[in-house]
Write a protein that binds this DNA or RNA. Structure first.
Lengths: 137, 137
DNA sequence: GTTGACCTTGGAGTTTACTCAAAGGTTTAT
DNA sequence: ATAAACCTTTGAGTAAACTCCAAGGTCAAC
């Protein structure tokens, strides 16, 4: 199958497929005589792995690590894989915590503001940001 | 006060201050005869506004909008400010939701994995990513 | 009068994950 | 045989928010 077909099956762009190949995520494929990339079901499966890993939050760099382990399973332990997963979960949790702090502060700001057509001269959001000691950060 | 002193007081770098000026966040300051930036308490207050807005999650671009309103309060309404705040809260909430989905999937993966020194050949995380129809995405 | 700490500018580099364009070769259908 | 639809490569551009560098000017202290 040529690149366009694989792209369509996976619902991504051909550019993305070439990008993944270039960055060591998707293994090189055979080429036709004219130089076209010819993909096998193996490549499609590899791509599905990549897309699933992306869907659970792994970055491309992290997916590279997972692929390295996956391709040489004999050389690696279950513990390593779990380690990567738990690490990722921790950074996700940290980000969630930060965003929740944002959410809380923004809610405080919004709730205190009338939000009406009044001039913004006395807007509580602006004055709070100007001199806030009371924002929960 | 020169740039180094203001930077120290705000606990940011001089590069950041120049960056903010260049990108229209911090108003231009006077210059000494030799071309040094000379900042007044007004500039420090403006920077505090910016840093507080950052601390509650606004991007620099959004802070620019807030500053425009702030500098011409007569021309704007409370509603506009609240609107920006609520919009921001929504994007923050959306991001939290996505990250929570990640967290959930990663937890499922991690919990199913023994994480031991066993070879990764049968690692449940890898096999799940290879052929997962059961990942909650 | 010279060291060292400060300041200036312009421009390049970083990270992430693509996306687009240009200029050209190939295949397929009519 | 020619037009449309595909493929190739290289290289540049995007967003966000800085960060670093080079090459040079300035100021205070000793």
């Amino acid at each position: 199958m040529k690149i366009g077909e694989l792209a369509k099956r996976l619902d991504i762009s051909t550019d993305t497929l070439r990008y993944y190949e270039k960055h060591g995520l998707l293994s090189f494929s055979e080429r036709s005589e004219s130089g076209y990339r010819i993909y096998s079901p193996k490549h499609e499966k590899q791509m599905q792995f990549i897309l699933r890993a992306k869907a659970v939050g792994f970055s491309l760099k992290e997916i590279q690590e997972l692929l390295e382990i996956k391709l040489e399973k004999q050389q690696h332990s279950c513990g390593e894989v779990k380690q990567l997963t738990l690490q990722k979960r921790q950074t996700v949790r940290d980000k969630i915590a930060e965003l929740k702090r944002f959410e809380k502060s923004l809610s405080l700001l919004a709730d205190a503001c009338c939000g009406g057509p009044e001039l913004a001269t006395g807007c509580s959001i602006l004055t709070t940001l100007e001199a806030a000691d009371d924002i929960v950060i």
